[in-house]
Amino acid sequence: MRGKRIGALIGALGGLLFVLINTGAFPVQFAVPVRGLGTLAFVFVLWRTVLRPPPQTIAETPPSPTARRVYWNCVLAGALSIPIGANLLNRVLPLPQLTVLWVIFVVGARFLPFTRAFAAPVFKPLAWVLMGLAATGAALTLTVWPAAPGSIAVLAGFALLGFSASGTVKRSGLLLD
């Protein structure tokens, strides 16, 4: 259960950061309530995972050495690909507005190997949602909506918060499978 709580907290923190950082371009009358909603979602995940964790019904087995290797390889790949891609977008392709979308895409892509390594199918839809948002945002930015990256990043933040919250809600019995 500890690993699931840590994963939910990491996802929720990443989601909150996406929301807080990227609402800066929003008009104040929208930014404040969106930030408030993101903060409430984060507090909910925090409450469900740390302050009131669900009862442990099944002993959690520690990740296998293979799963740990997959995790750290994904962390390393993300740590390398984010700055390399950002540098490419900023200096070579002059498309700095796409940098946040690149970050969202990489974050999403990192979740795909986790599905199999940790036998956790929840990672697959999260990965595809984030990668789909990034691709959609890039297409919109380059064609009809130059301001799309900030809004897409906020949506990605709420996707991370939602997946983090849904795991804590489902495990607590508040949702039926």
Rank of each mutant, 00 (worst) to 15 (best):
T141N: 03
A148V: 01
G157E: 02
G38T: 08
A117E: 04
R116I: 10
G11E: 09
I21M: 13
S151K: 15
P54N: 04
T115V: 08
I58T: 12
F123V: 03
F123M: 13
A25R: 12
N90L: 10
P113E: 05
R69C: 06
G24F: 08
A59T: 11
R171M: 05
V100T: 09
A12S: 14
W102Q: 00
S64L: 01
L80N: 05
T143P: 00
L174W: 14
N90Y: 04
L98F: 01
Q29Y: 07
P53W: 00
A109Y: 10
G36D: 04
R69P: 01
L37K: 02
L17D: 06
G162H: 09
L95H: 13
G3V: 00
Q97S: 12
V70D: 10
R116G: 05
G85T: 10
P33W: 10
T23K: 05
Q56K: 08
G137S: 04
P55V: 11
L20C: 04
V50F: 02
A86Y: 00
L16Y: 01
G7Y: 03
L95F: 07
W128F: 15
G14C: 12
L17Y: 11
F44H: 09
G24N: 14
G150M: 00
R35W: 01
L112I: 12
L95R: 11
A109K: 06
L93E: 15
D177G: 14
I21R: 08
N73P: 07
K124H: 11
I104N: 00
P65L: 03
R110S: 14
L20N: 05
Y71F: 09
R116H: 10
